[in-house]
Design a protein around this nucleic acid. Structure first.
Length: 260
DNA sequence: TTGATTGTTACCGG
DNA sequence: TCCGGTAACAATCA
């Protein structure tokens, strides 16, 4: 693919499909590990993740921006490349593998200014070494919005999704309906630290695992979370309440997670 | 065929 | 300005 990217038309609609070169490993939350890609003849110099947003950086200050959204998927296979399945928006190829990106929420080439604007509107990413937790704390402690909703706001804190928010708040014994203003500094610190801990496990295992004692690959998905989708609390055996927050279902144990 | 879903953004009204 | 509510969009599977 030395000639760089080629614009195609995806099978099901008029969105452009890019073809480049890459060596890639998918992981949860849309994060990507190291790779190499070519766009317009330019070599990819880095793949950065900011929360759930991915930036494939190229020379000439351009970046391919990918956000998988709720339905986007990476599909990796060995060469020879199979026929694209479904709505493939990007096809990345190496000498031995092909990675198709299906149905991403965002799929666009950004210039330096646009990339900077994107990063600026995303809150501190718990998995980034340069994350500024104080930014998240200031937003939370000044807001009367429920903590379960604030954790879903990617401009407040980036990286946590719908499953992780229920799991983190249960692990830290904080009810999702607790207003941000009622969260103490210690509570915030524990939320942040647990998010760092759990998301790092997610990257390592390529799965959402929030049960401390979860056995490796053998364990089934249901056994990897404490509370999400469950009816009884694994700690006290009491009933789990389920309600909507930020238009998504959230789970909590009223006994273990008192509302402050 | 229907409904649900590991997500985000835009827009409107209070 | 903040906040809640709604809709739109996306792909796949049970």
């Amino acid at each position: 693919m030395p000639e760089g990217h080629t614009i195609h038309r995806a099978a099901r609609d008029q969105r452009p499909m890019l073809v480049g070169q890459a060596l890639t490993v998918a992981s949860p939350q849309g994060r990507f590990h190291a790779g190499a890609a070519v766009l317009d003849g330019q070599l990819c110099t880095a793949i950065d993740a900011y929360g759930k947003h991915l930036l494939y950086r190229f020379a000439a200050d351009h970046a391919l921006h990918i956000h998988l959204g709720l339905f986007g998927r990476f599909r990796s296979s060995r060469l020879p490349a199979p026929e694209p399945r479904g709505a493939v928006r990007v096809r990345l190829m190496s000498g031995s593998h092909v990675v198709d990106i299906n149905g991403p929420n965002a799929c666009e080439v950004l210039d330096a200014h646009e990339s900077a604007a994107l990063i600026a509107r995303i809150g501190p990413d718990v998995l980034r070494a340069d994350a500024d937790a104080e930014r998240a704390w200031m937003r939370i402690t000044r807001s009367r919005v429920a903590i379960g909703q604030l954790l879903m706001d990617q401009s407040v804190i980036a990286g946590i999704g719908n499953i992780y928010r229920s799991e983190i708040l249960w692990r830290q014994r904080i009810h999702p309906a607790t207003p941000g203003t009622a969260i103490k500094r210690d509570g915030f610190d524990r939320i942040w630290a647990d998010a760092v801990h759990l998301l790092a496990i997610g990257v390592e295992r390529n799965a959402i695992v929030t049960v401390d004692a979860a056995r490796p690959s053998r364990s089934r998905y249901r056994e990897r979370v404490n509370i999400f989708g469950k009816t009884n609390c694994p700690a006290c055996a009491g009933p789990i309440e389920r309600f909507e927050l930020a238009a998504r279902r959230v789970f909590a144990c009223t006994a273990c997670q008192p509302i402050l």
